[in-house]
Design a protein around this nucleic acid. Structure first.
Lengths: 339, 339
DNA sequence: GTGAAAGCGCTAACAG
DNA sequence: CTGTTAGCGCTTTCAC
C-alpha cells in the first residue's frame, strides 16, 4: 500500500514541476486552450499520467463558478418512488441529454423536511449549475426553496405556482379527454373514473379532461378519488365504484397501475373485460402489456420529458434564450383490448 | 427583479462588513464554534439574514477537504433500473441514514461508457466524500474505476473482485437453498429453476443454492438461464421449461418478477398453481402479493441493505475502524400460496 | 508561447 | 473572545 500517496493527491503544481513548466501552462493544456507548444504539451501529458493527476472539482468550481453538474430532484412519497414506472425513464432521458453535454447528473431525493432544508443549501452552494424537478406538487416546499434560489431550473410537469419557470409536460387534460371519448365511443353508457393524486397538476387535469369528454353525461357519483397512482389504490377505487354503481360499464383509471388493480377487482367480481365493462389507463407503462386483457391507454413520453427538461436547463446555463418556457409533448392513444 | 443581486451572491465578507466584525468570527458562528460573544452572534445572524448569505459549498469543500456528500452509483441496464423494485428501497434506506448524519446523497447513473469515465472524474474531484455502489457486476468498469480511487466505499451485493472493500449483502446461496428445500418438502419430484443474471453474484449464488438443496436430484436440464430478473424473461423461461420438461411440478424463480411472468405462462398453459405445480420467487417485492396465488418467496431487506451500506461508508469517512468488512443481512422465507 | 501573480470564498492557526 | 494571516487547488489576466 503506497502509504504516502494516499494522504495527498497530485495537484497542478506537482504536474508543473514534473513537466518543468509553470502551473499556467498546465492549466492551458487541461482546458484544451491553444498556444501551447507541442513539446510542453507532451511533457505535461506524460507528467499527468506519471503523478496520477486528477483535477480537483471543488477548486475548479470555485474559480470558474460552475460545476458541470445538474441536480435532478425527485420528490415522491417513498412508496411511489419505488413503483412509478415513469420516474426511471425520466431519469434515464435526462441523464442521456446531460451526459451528451458532458454534465454530471446527480439525482437528489427529497423524502423528509430534513432532506429539503439540506437540499436547498446544497443547491445554492455552487456545486450544482442547474436543477430539474420531477413530480413537484403545488405549494411544495421544494418548489418554494428552488424558486428563491435563482438557479437554472426546469420542471417536469406543471404545478400552478412555479411562476414563469421553464417546464415540460404533457397535456394531461386533452389526453384524458381523448381517451375518455374513445371509451365512450365503444358504446358505454355509465362511465366512471378512478382519479388519483388530485393535489398534483397531472391528477387534477386528467379529471378535468374526463369531465370535459363526458359533458352532460358526467356524473360526480361515478368518480372515485384515491391518493396515489398505485395498484392498491386501483383496487380500492374499483371496489368503491362497483358498490356505488353496480351498473357501471366503463372506467377511466388515472394510471396503468390503477387500471391493473381495478382489473383484478373486476375479475374477482366476475365482470368480463371488455365485454361487460371497458377500462382504459394512462402511461403505457410496463403494466399495460402485462394486464389481461392488455390495456388501452395513453402513451406518456417519459424519456423525452426527461431529455427535454435537461435541454431546457442546459440552455439556461449557457445563457441562451429559452426556446419556449412551456413545452408540451405529444402523447398518442394506444388502443388494445381492455376496451 | 433585483438585477444586481443576481450577479453575485453574498460572501462571508459581506456578512462580516454588515455585522461589523471580521470574517473569522463569521466563520466561527457558521460552524457553531464556541467563543463568540452573544452580541457578535446576534449581529452576524441578523447580517446573514439581511444579505441573504448562503455558504459556498465549493469553497468550503476546497478548504475542508470534504463535501458532506456521498454518491450512490446505480449501474443497471436501463430497463432494469426502471423496474427493479429493490433499487428504490435501497436508495431510500441509504438516503435515510445519510440524511440523519447530515450528508447529502447524490444518486449517479452509469448507463454508458461515457457516463463511466465522467463519473470516475467526478468521484475523484473532491466533490464527494464516499460512494455506495449498487448492483455492480464482476469485471465491471465502475468497480475497477472506484477501486483505483481510494475513496471510502461500500458495495451493496458482493461481486467477487472487489478486494477487501466493505460490502453488505444477503446470503443468496443459503436463502435459495432454504426456499428450494421448502419447495421440495411439499412433495414435488421434478423441480426446475429459472435462473437470471448469472453474471452477477446474486444470480450465480441463487443457482448454487438451488443446486445444493437438490443434491443428487439436481437435473441441469431443468434449469433455464435468462439474462434479466424481469417479468418478460420469466415468461420466456417458463415456456422453455414447459417445453423441455412437461412433467415439471415445481419451479424456483430467481426473482418475484420472473415468477410473476412464469405464473402467467402457467395459467395460459392450463396448469393449476399450486395443485399441479408449485412456484416460489425471491425478493418479496410488490410483485409477490400481486400474483395470483400470492407468491411464496424470500424476503429481501432492501431498505436495510441501503442503510447498512451508508453506515459503512460513514464509518470510513469518519476514520472509524470498520465494524466488519462484510455484513450479511437476514432474509426470512415468507410462505404464501403459490407452493 | 509561457511565467508570475492575483484571486474564487472559505476555514484555521495564531496572536492579541 | 476576536482580528489577521495564510493558504485549499485551480484558472486567468498581464507582462515578457
Amino acid at each position: 500500500m503506497a502509504s504516502e500517496d494516499r494522504r495527498r493527491r497530485a495537484t497542478v503544481n506537482d504536474v508543473a514541476v514534473e513537466a518543468g513548466v509553470s502551473r499556467g501552462t498546465v492549466s492551458r493544456v487541461l482546458n484544451g486552450k491553444r498556444y501551447v507548444s507541442s513539446e510542453s504539451r507532451a511533457a505535461i501529458d506524460a507528467a499527468i499520467a506519471k503523478v496520477g493527476f486528477v483535477p480537483n472539482g471543488a477548486a475548479r468550481s470555485l474559480v470558474m463558478q460552475r460545476s458541470q453538474a445538474v441536480g435532478l430532484i425527485v420528490h415522491e412519497p417513498s412508496s411511489l418512488f419505488i413503483e412509478d414506472p415513469n420516474i426511471g425513464s425520466i431519469l434515464l432521458g435526462a441523464n442521456e441529454a446531460l451526459s451528451e453535454a458532458d454534465y454530471q447528473m446527480a439525482c437528489l431525493i427529497a423524502d423528509s423536511s430534513r432532506d429539503i432544508s439540506r437540499l436547498s443549501n446544497y443547491l445554492s452552494g455552487g456545486l450544482i449549475d442547474g436543477v430539474i424537478i420531477v413530480s413537484a406538487r403545488e405549494g411544495d416546499a421544494i418548489t418554494r426553496a428552488v424558486s428563491r434560489l435563482d438557479l437554472p431550473t426546469a420542471f417536469v410537469g406543471h404545478p400552478r405556482d412555479i411562476g414563469n419557470a421553464a417546464y415540460v409536460a404533457i397535456d394531461n387534460q386533452t389526453a384524458a379527454q381523448a381517451i375518455t371519448s374513445r371509451l365512450a365511443s365503444t358504446g358505454r353508457r355509465r362511465i366512471g373514473m378512478i382519479a388519483a393524486a388530485l393535489d398534483r397538476d397531472s391528477g387534477a387535469d386528467r379529471l378535468a379532461g374526463f369531465r370535459a369528454a363526458l359533458g352532460n353525461d358526467f356524473d360526480p357519483a361515478l368518480v372515485e378519488s384515491v391518493p396515489l397512482y398505485s395498484y392498491r389504490d386501483g383496487q380500492e377505487g374499483m371496489r368503491a365504484l362497483l358498490q356505488r354503481a353496480p351498473d357501471i360499464d366503463g372506467v377511466f383509471a388515472s394510471s396503468d397501475a390503477l387500471a391493473a388493480g381495478a382489473l383484478e377487482v373486476l375479475h374477482l367480481a366476475g365482470r368480463r373485460v371488455p365485454e361487460d365493462i371497458g377500462i382504459v389507463g394512462f402511461d403505457d407503462s410496463s403494466w399495460a402489456m402485462r394486464c389481461d386483457p392488455p390495456l388501452s391507454t395513453v402513451q406518456q413520453p417519459a424519456t423525452s420529458l426527461g431529455r427535454a427538461a435537461a435541454e431546457a436547463v442546459l440552455r439556461q446555463i449557457r445563457g441562451e434564450a429559452p426556446m419556449q418556457n412551456a413545452q408540451m409533448l405529444e402523447c398518442p392513444i394506444v388502443w388494445r383490448n381492455s376496451a
